[in-house]
Design a protein around this nucleic acid. Structure first.
Length: 690
DNA sequence: TTTAGGG
DNA sequence: CCCTAAA
């Protein structure tokens, strides 16, 4: 079934006072603060500011708050171990029972297991739980996230108290130029209604993410940099997990690359990846698709759709298939894209010309976030209820103050087998959402329903500072282009890398990104370009040509930005070119460096299972990370061993904690020895036989 | 399909 | 990461 829904996320953080923060983040990035003060802040700065806050809020909270609890957590952890990990074995929470796990994790897992205090930890000799223990921590976040209705009171500072308002419906579909999306959408729907298993989800509340254990000592998927923080030492080597459930949210939200990591954002992805998915077949079959109309615009697809008015299913199926194939094949990422992608990895903050840089800069800011991050308002969990608030601007001292109450998340398309459990559905949705959020968002600014594309004009120039315009201001969350390379095939799904939701396909019609409804003036479904950005890769320098696919249907859109023509053109042209260029050649998979958490998971699994059982390792520790094959894990282990043997100076990439490397060597030595023993045993036998 | 290794 | 031989 394909589920469509929209989620509204409420961000508490955007209170009026937020402005100062923004300024800070801007400073961090080296943006000229003065400009802001003088009301000279350009649109780009504004965007960056908003994005920065978003990230900050999401990530910082957890990091900063743990200190006091760390000890406690540790002790708790121990306790858990003693008590019996079995209880905790959250292993697969296939069934809807996830909630249970959830709780478990909540109570117990205040402290993520800090399992291995030392080498001894998870070797085979130790009992089995070790492995699982560490896996235990589940994120409660989902619950929280969605808790909007259930317990608002509880939610504090969560960035995203996600509201699960799901809007079904095709209402979202919009026509954009020659985009076939609409057609497709319809098709899907029909398909669903007819076909057996498709279900429309109404609300997702309590998504259970328990299945995804936040692995490892909770290193918060935070920034690597944070790891080194002084706090870490508290619990053994591990960074304390913040783990208060509430914090978890943050973590999760951030994760982006599950899919990986691919995204330039390293951290975010971590979270997602580790989710352990229940080994259910059904789950595996879940396909999430993030598709943008743009892609669809491609040639082939279009034709097909057109030609088969009747065969709803067929066209779709096919496209999906292709998508999968593609994914499997590692998505074809045009070189340019790749470049961008890589680029994004680097913290760049260029004038804001390109989104990537922007995004990155924002992320970078996260590090300081803990300190600078403002505490969200006291605490109440506001959640979605807030949605619909107005962004209010006040003009004071030439500063523009705004408050963003919520962002709308673009619709997500989810395909999941009928036999899948509710829990898996929840997880799936969570992954989709996480992928989007974690994938690196990019903020769009709407003024009176029109997208403000020029990042360099000042607020003053754009009219944003004018009181009369304030009401018409809107923000949109858009997938970060750098993160999701445009797939070649028309039906393709972009990768949301962030986490591991390699297969998540969120379909967000260009117009529907996540929009801040706050402004009454801005129609809820204005035009916003979202994924369109993907195409944009070709035009980096340009603010975002494609990005703007505006919804023709929308009333407002017609006004200022003549996007349709452009977007259509871009869409149709780009895909074609790519296609011709890349044809069918299997693309090399995108490089997805292992995060520290992943390494940790790998090490732990290998410690327990040994070096010759990669499939088991995969199942055990990376079952959820579809992009990590057992071969990948084996290769990674190989490199880890190598890395551990060379001098720190010679190592490259994200530094792997020495502690882990030590464990690698240990485990490697241990298993090598085991292997040798085995052989010795066998040899005598053979000799005897001979 | 998995392992194991070289590239 | 890819490619493959071998199991």
């Amino acid at each position: 079934m394909v589920l469509q829904k929209r989620l509204d996320y409420g961000f508490n953080g955007y209170q009026v006072p937020a402005m100062p923060r923004a300024t800070r983040s801007a400073r961090r990035r080296g943006t000229v603060r003065k400009r802001v003060e003088e009301n000279q802040m350009c649109a780009f700065d504004l965007l960056a500011t908003v994005a920065g806050n978003l990230l900050l809020e999401k990530q910082s909270t957890p990091i900063s708050s743990n200190t006091s609890n760390q000890k406690d957590k540790c002790s708790i952890v121990n306790q858990d171990e003693q008590d019996g990990n079995k209880t905790l074995k959250v292993e697969p929470c296939d069934q809807g029972s996830c909630e249970r796990n959830f709780f478990v994790s909540e109570n117990v897992s205040h402290a993520p297991n800090v399992n291995h205090s030392s080498k001894e930890s998870s070797f085979p000799q130790n009992d089995d739980h070790s492995g699982f223990t560490s896996i235990m921590t589940t994120s409660n976040c989902s619950e929280r996230l969605v808790a909007k209705n259930s317990d608002n009171g509880k939610i504090k500072n969560e960035v995203g108290s996600f509201c699960s308002q799901i809007e079904e419906g095709l209402s979202m579909y919009r026509e954009s130029g020659g985009c076939k999306l609409e057609g497709e959408a319809k098709t899907l729907v029909k398909d669903e209604s007819n076909s057996t298993g498709k279900v429309l989800i109404g609300t997702v509340a309590d998504m259970c993410s328990s299945e995804y254990p936040a692995h490892f000592k909770g290193k918060p998927p935070a920034m690597p940099s944070s790891d080194s923080s002084p706090k870490a030492p508290l619990c053994g080597d591990h960074v304390p997990q913040s783990l208060l459930p509430s914090h978890r949210d943050n973590v999760k939200v951030v994760s982006r690359d599950d899919d990986e990591n691919s995204s330039g954002c390293t951290h975010p992805s971590t979270t997602t990846r580790y989710f352990k998915r229940a080994p259910r077949i059904g789950d595996r079959r879940i396909r999430k698709i993030l598709a943008s109309k743009h892609w669809k615009v491609g040639s082939k697809f279009k034709d097909e759709t057109l030609s088969n008015p009747d065969g709803f299913i067929k066209p779709i199926y096919r496209s999906r298939k292709d998508c999968y194939k593609r994914q499997r094949a590692q998505m074809n990422v045009p070189f340019k894209k790749r470049k961008l992608f890589n680029h994004s990895t680097v913290w760049t903050s260029d004038g804001g010309t390109n989104n990537h840089g922007f995004f990155n800069s924002t992320e970078k800011g996260i590090g300081d976030a803990s300190e600078s991050c403002p505490k969200l308002q006291g605490g109440t969990g506001t959640s979605c209820s807030v949605a619909g608030q107005h962004t209010s601007f006040q003009r004071r001292d030439s500063h523009v103050k705004l408050r963003i109450k919520s962002f709308r998340v673009p619709e997500l398309f989810i395909e999941i087998p009928e036999t899948a459990t509710v829990g898996s559905l929840k997880r799936t949705v969570m992954e989709a959402v996480t992928a989007i959020l974690g994938g690196g968002l990019h903020i769009g600014v709407l003024l009176k329903g029109n997208k403000v594309r020029d990042d360099n004009i000042t607020l003053l120039q754009s009219g944003i500072s004018h009181d009369n315009q304030l009401d018409a201001l809107g923000f949109t969350l858009e997938p970060n282009p750098s993160q999701s390379p445009p797939p070649l095939c028309s039906g393709d799904s972009p990768h949301l890398l962030p986490g591991d939701a390699p297969q998540l396909l969120a379909r967000s019609p260009p117009n529907q990104d996540i929009v801040d409804h706050a402004n009454a003036n801005v129609p809820p479904e204005p035009h916003v370009a979202s994924l369109g950005n993907l195409v944009e890769s070709d035009h980096d320098s340009a603010p975002s040509p494609t990005e703007t696919s505006v919804d023709k249907s929308t009333t407002d859109s017609k006004a200022l930005v003549p996007v349709p023509a452009i977007s259509v053109e871009a869409l149709s042209v780009v895909p074609a070119l790519r296609k011709s260029k890349r044809s069918e050649i299997a693309q090399r998979r995108i490089r997805r460096p292992f995060s520290v958490s992943e390494v940790e998971a790998l090490v732990q699994a290998v410690e327990k299972l040994g070096t010759g059982r990669w499939r088991d390792v995969k199942l055990r520790a990376f079952d959820n990370a579809k992009h990590r094959t057992y071969v990948d894990l084996k290769d990674k282990w190989k490199t880890l061993v190598h890395t551990a043997r060379i001098s720190p100076q010679q190592r490259r990439g994200e530094p792997v904690p020495q502690e882990l490397l030590d464990r690698v060597l240990c485990a490697h030595a241990y298993w090598s020895q085991q292997q040798a023993k085995q052989q010795l045993k066998q040899q005598p036998e053979t000799c005897l036989l001979l």
